[in-house]
């Protein structure tokens, strides 16, 4: 074997190991979680509203609703701020200021999620309790934290897609007598639509998968929420809270929760890739 073949083999094996990690984890989750679906019934798990593992009830519908609601709230808060921020960075911000802004936004991505959660617990939760009522630990608190946490994803990907547009689009728009804002709104944003949509979908994927920060502020009650001030539990926090002591069917139920989460995130990511590729 010559050196080229050897180095090729080494790289191939290392590359394979990263893929096999994915395959192992996926396989393990499905092997552990799937049997319960057959034992209890798919509908009883996915659409069941009663979660009482010790009594054999494994309904995770409240958690699915919880994940969807918290994520929706985070999207409503984070997307307008994130997209406007990327427009500002690309179109309005002087270079000196954007050199300050960009690292700051990257830093936002570097803060550990437990720190977000801790900050939320000490500031956002009491703020909601004192000003809006309820226990403070709530869907709203989780949405606010996640809305901030998805900003770096949304801002950096939308910024790239706006920046990569050919200069000719903007020139053409301005030459037609459009104002700067009209050029952004009616030419640049539609042209960058696929990139911005991908940014939003990836942000949603990040929000739905986040665990630590939301465990600390959601209150984690297993119930269908009636208001944004109610405490709720998401799919991720369900696993995070109970994994320490779960055994037997209970443990399998947590893996089943993982399967549902896995499928949701897979769908979101494939959707994001599909949109980003369709130009």
């Amino acid at each position: 074997m010559n050196k080229d073949t050897i180095s090729k083999m080494v790289f191939f094996i290392l590359a394979l190991s990263s893929i096999s990690a994915l395959a192992l984890i996926t396989g393990f989750i499905f092997i552990q979680g799937l049997p319960l679906f057959f034992k209890v019934g798919f509908a009883n798990i996915v659409f069941g509203t009663k979660w009482a593992p010790s009594q054999g009830s494994f309904g995770i519908f409240p958690m699915i609703v919880g994940s969807v609601c918290v994520t929706l709230g985070a999207t409503l808060l984070g997307v307008p701020i994130g997209v406007c921020c990327s427009i500002f960075l690309v179109e309005y911000c002087p270079a000196s200021l954007s050199n300050l802004f960009r690292p700051a936004i990257q830093l936002l991505a570097g803060i550990p999620s437990v720190v977000y959660g801790f900050w939320g617990l000490l500031f956002i939760v009491p703020f909601i309790r004192n000003n809006l009522g309820g226990p403070g630990l709530s869907m709203l608190a989780g949405s606010m934290i996640l809305g901030i946490m998805i900003l770096p994803t949304i801002i950096s990907i939308s910024e790239v897609s706006l920046k990569d547009l050919p200069r000719q689009y903007k020139e053409g728009a301005l030459a037609l007598g459009m104002t700067h804002w009209q050029a952004i709104y009616s030419v640049l944003l539609p042209a960058a639509r696929s990139g911005i949509t991908a940014a939003i979908v990836l942000g949603i994927g990040r929000a739905i998968g986040e665990t630590m920060a939301v465990i600390m502020v959601l209150g984690n009650a297993v119930a269908l929420p009636e208001s944004i001030l109610d405490p709720i539990r998401t799919l991720t926090t369900n696993i995070g809270i109970e994994m320490g002591y779960a055994t037997g069917d209970h443990q399998q139920a947590l893996f089943a929760t993982g399967i549902v989460l896995f499928v949701i995130i897979m769908i979101l990511n494939s959707f994001a890739q599909y949109i980003a590729r369709r130009k």
Binding site: E171, A173, V187
Partner: peptide
Amino acid sequence: GMVFQKPNLFPTSIYNNIAIGPKS
């Protein structure tokens, strides 16, 4: 009006490319 070196149509329909100026 200005016409550039390379055609720089916007990535939208033929109709919108023309209507976009009057709309603005």
